[in-house]
């Protein structure tokens, strides 16, 4: 019996946590479609999540695209397939690396910042103050951030994809002797609309996950500095794991079979 209890307790805990998070997600999404709408907070979130994440997502994509070109060239050389560098860089960046690395960078930058901000608001009673000022914290804090992340991360991913391909182009044309015009032609010819749509859908899903995890752990933070620290750390870890799991599921849906 003790053995069964040892298994049952964490399983029940996991199910309860999943239920709480699901209700949180549903409530957040329901507030996006019910007035009042806090446009100022939405605008701030667009700026913070989208615009200010551009440098980190762009740099990550650029270096990844460059490294990918070098790897494919070196690996392809083993079976005389060096010429496929433009195609593989394009497909690798657009289908996988662009959205996943973009999502992970957003998790690092945005999830942590949302969780820390909301958790601090919680421990300093700012969330209670919101309630006493007739403002629903989910509507004021969570809904604008999650909506802004869902809208802006696909755009970030699209920019990241482009910069990543550009990184591969720079390395390939300056270090590996590719003809610039042919490289670009091969890239454009090989990519399909389906690849781009998939990339954007993944971006939207990863953006939503990143913001939701930040808001959820922030609002459920424990007391004091330790509570804020724990909420921030857990939110980033959970967002990163969920993004990778969602990536697998979406890849399965879009590309399997």
């Amino acid at each position: 019996m003790r053995f069964l209890a040892a298994i049952g307790r964490p399983v029940l805990g996991f199910l309860a946590a999943t239920g709480r998070f699901t209700l949180f997600v549903l409530e957040t999404f329901s507030h996006m479609f019910r007035p009042p709408f806090y446009m100022r907070e939405f605008g701030h979130a667009l700026l913070n999540i989208g615009y200010f994440s551009l440098p980190v997502v762009g740099l990550t994509a650029f270096f990844t695209g460059g490294a990918l070109a070098l790897q494919i060239y070196a690996g392809g050389a083993r079976f005389s397939a060096e010429a496929v560098v433009p195609q593989i860089v394009a497909i690798g960046m657009v289908r996988e690396l662009g959205p996943v690395l973009g999502g992970l960078m957003i998790a690092a930058r945005v999830t942590s910042s949302i969780a820390a901000e909301i958790a601090t608001m919680k421990v300093t009673e700012q969330i209670d103050a919101l309630v006493t000022l007739s403002t629903h914290p989910m509507k004021y804090l969570a809904a604008p951030r999650v909506l802004a992340a869902t809208v802006t991360v696909p755009i970030l991913v699209a920019i990241g994809d482009t910069i990543g391909i550009f990184g591969g182009y720079i390395v390939s044309t300056t270090r590996l002797g590719f003809n610039p015009a042919t490289y670009l032609q091969n890239t454009v010819d090989f990519l399909e609309l389906h690849d781009i749509v998939t990339s954007l859908v993944k971006g939207a899903a990863f953006g939503a996950i990143a913001a939701l995890m930040g808001c959820y752990y922030g609002m459920n933070s424990g007391r004091g500095a330790q509570g804020v620290g724990r909420a921030t750390k857990t939110s980033v870890v959970a967002a990163a794991v969920l993004i990778l799991a969602a990536n697998f599921l979406l890849t399965e849906v879009f590309f399997a079979g």
Binding site: M121, T124, E125, Q126, D128, A129, T132
Partner: peptide
């Protein structure tokens, strides 16, 4: 209601 919180709870 109006409420003054212990730490003021102003929005940073």
């Amino acid at each position: 209601f109006g409420m003054l919180f212990q730490g003021a709870a102003l929005f940073d």
